[in-house]
């Protein structure tokens, strides 16, 4: 360390990597091969940030999460979370972070939700008054009241997720790690959880690291995204810059008066036609294209569509592979 950073990062991963040994083949001729699940991942997260950790299935997101929380030790590199070494100081670290895995639960299946939440007071050694105050606050924010006395096995997925979030937050952790927190939830539940997380971040300064396939989560919550693909870091920067790095054209949706041949104008390419509706991929100034289209056709309606983050990430993956894996990286918080 040559310089003293202004703020100590909550997460500091340097050259983080994890290999697995995969055994395959018939019983007597087993082959062992080393699989590089995560390779040379470097990023750091400052206090108060909300980071989206994105990537396709199998990219190494969960493996990274497991290394950050200490349930998997890295094969290469080093990582510090809240100043601790996760795999060696797992139990200590567990007291300072909150973790929610969307597909798993910490709650006691057979007992009322209230009992699991009461247990966290002892688990994390939270003073009774603090615990009560925080539980009251979270109960109100996440609207737990109606099902506090219900056994967890009888809760809906959305209720259970709110219960798990509460259990992860009752000890006021510095860092909240969320692995697909909105998976399987309906639109209303998703939105409630997003608004809650934003509030938690702005009002209490809780740092949030989030993996998700739900790009609504990313757009609503994350100013900064880290994209991992094939185990390597493919991008680290803000969302707008991700869009610029993997430019995805805007789309003009044109509703004509009636079915017509594909529109041909300069600065756009018609990519889809469905009856009177046509989709044009823009390569020039939208205003000029719109003027050209309106001049040549009888237009009933026009919509300009921004590229979806999903398209952007997909484009980043495909271009990254085409460029033989040369990672694009910028590291705005490296010290």
């Amino acid at each position: 360390m040559t310089s003293v950073p202004l703020t100590t990062p909550v997460i500091d991963a340097r050259g983080l990597g994890r290999d697995f040994t995969r055994v395959s083949g018939p019983l007597l001729r087993r082959r062992r091969e080393r699989v590089n699940a995560v390779h040379d991942v470097t990023f750091s997260v400052a206090p108060g940030e909300i980071i989206g950790y994105l990537g396709p299935n199998g990219a190494g997101k969960s493996t990274t999460m497991k290394m950050l929380t200490g349930i998997l030790s890295p094969s290469h590199g080093r990582v510090r979370v809240c100043g601790l070494e996760p795999s060696r100081q797992r139990t200590l670290l567990a007291g300072r972070i909150g973790v929610v895995f969307g597909q798993r639960t910490t709650l006691w299946w057979d007992l009322p939700l209230r009992d699991s939440l009461a247990l966290t007071r002892h688990l994390y050694r939270v003073p009774a008054a603090d615990h009560a105050a925080r539980l009251a606050e979270l109960t109100e924010l996440l609207e737990l009241g109606p099902f506090l006395a219900t056994p967890v096995r009888q809760l809906s997925l959305g209720q259970r997720m709110r219960g798990d979030l509460t259990a992860a937050l009752l000890h006021a952790p510095e860092l909240l790690v969320l692995d697909e927190p909105t998976i399987g939830l309906d639109v209303v539940s998703k939105s409630a959880i997003r608004e809650f997380l934003l509030r938690l971040n702005t009002e209490q300064g809780t740092t949030i690291l989030l993996t998700t396939h739900d790009l609504g989560d990313v757009e609503r919550l994350c100013r900064r995204v880290v994209v991992i693909d094939h185990g390597s870091l493919a991008f680290d920067g803000d969302l707008a810059r991700l869009r610029a790095t993997a430019p995805t054209p805007r789309t003009l949706v044109v509703d004509l008066a009636g079915p017509a041949d594909p529109i041909e104008v300069a600065g756009a390419r018609t990519v889809r036609v469905e009856g009177p509706r046509q989709w044009l991929e823009l390569s020039a100034n939208p205003a000029e294209v719109i003027a050209a289209v309106a001049g040549a056709h009888s237009v009933a309606d026009l919509t300009l569509r921004e590229p979806d983050i999903e398209d952007v990430v997909a484009r980043l993956y495909s271009s990254g592979r085409a460029a033989a894996g040369a990672p694009r990286r910028e590291d705005p918080v490296s010290g």
């Binding site: 139990t91 007291g95 973790v99 798993r104 639960t105 910490t106 688990l123 994390y124």
Partner: peptide
């Protein structure tokens, strides 16, 4: 089934 991850994330031995 991997639920053990949650057990390992408790601040208790």
């Amino acid at each position: 089934d991997g639920q053990v991850a949650m057990d390992l994330l408790r601040p208790v031995g």
